[in-house]
Computed example of a mutant assay.
Amino acid sequence: MTTILVTGGTGTLGSLVAERLRAGGHEVRVLSRHARPYAVDLREGGPGLDEAVAGVDVIVHCASTPRGGDEKAAGHLIEAARRAGVPHLLYISIVGVDRVPLGYYKSKHAVEKLVEESGLGWTVLRTTQFHDLVFQGLQTLARLPVMLLPAGVGDQPVEVAEVADRLAELATGAPAGRVADMGGPEVRTAPDLARAYLRAGRRRRPVVEVRLAGKAYKGMRDGGHLTPERAVGKGTFEEFLARRFPAS
Rank of each mutant, 00 (worst) to 15 (best):
T2S: 12
T3G: 00
T3N: 02
I4F: 02
L5I: 07
T7E: 08
T7Y: 10
G8C: 04
G9T: 07
G9V: 01
G14V: 01
G14H: 06
L16T: 01
A18Y: 05
L21R: 01
R22E: 10
R22F: 00
R22V: 05
H26V: 01
E27W: 01
R29L: 04
S32P: 07
P37Q: 06
P37M: 05
Y38A: 03
V40E: 07
E44A: 14
G45K: 11
P47Q: 15
P47C: 09
G48H: 12
D50R: 15
E51I: 05
A52D: 03
G55W: 15
V56T: 14
I59Y: 12
I59E: 13
H61A: 15
H61N: 15
A63K: 11
T65R: 06
P66G: 08
R67F: 11
G68K: 08
E71K: 06
E71D: 08
A74Q: 07
G75Q: 07
A81R: 12
A81G: 10
R83H: 14
A84K: 11
G85A: 13
V86K: 14
P87C: 12
P87E: 06
L90K: 09
V95Q: 01
V97D: 12
V100R: 08
P101W: 07
L102V: 03
Y104P: 00
Y105D: 05
Y105I: 00
K108T: 00
K108A: 11
A110Y: 00
V111Q: 03
V111A: 06
E112S: 03
E112Y: 03
K113T: 09
E116C: 00
G119I: 08
L120P: 08
T123K: 01
T123H: 01
V124Q: 03
V124K: 02
L125R: 00
Q129I: 11
H131W: 09
D132N: 05
D132A: 09
V134W: 00
F135I: 04
F135R: 09
L138I: 03
Q139W: 03
T140I: 13
L141K: 08
A142W: 00
L144K: 08
V146T: 08
M147D: 04
L149T: 07
D155Y: 14
V158C: 08
V158A: 12
V158G: 05
V158T: 03
E159N: 13
A161W: 07
A161Q: 12
E162D: 09
V163H: 06
L167S: 09
A168R: 03
E169K: 13
G173M: 07
A174E: 15
P175M: 02
A176T: 07
G177T: 10
R178W: 14
R178E: 10
R178H: 14
V179N: 00
V179K: 08
A180N: 02
M182D: 09
G183F: 09
G183K: 05
G184D: 12
D192H: 15
A196F: 02
A196P: 03
L198W: 14
R203C: 13
V207N: 10
V208G: 02
V210A: 04
A213M: 13
A213V: 07
G214C: 08
K218A: 15
G219S: 13
M220G: 10
G223S: 09
H225Y: 02
E229L: 14
A231M: 14
V232D: 15
G233C: 05
G233D: 13
G235E: 12
E238W: 13
E239I: 10
P246S: 09
P246M: 11
P246Q: 11
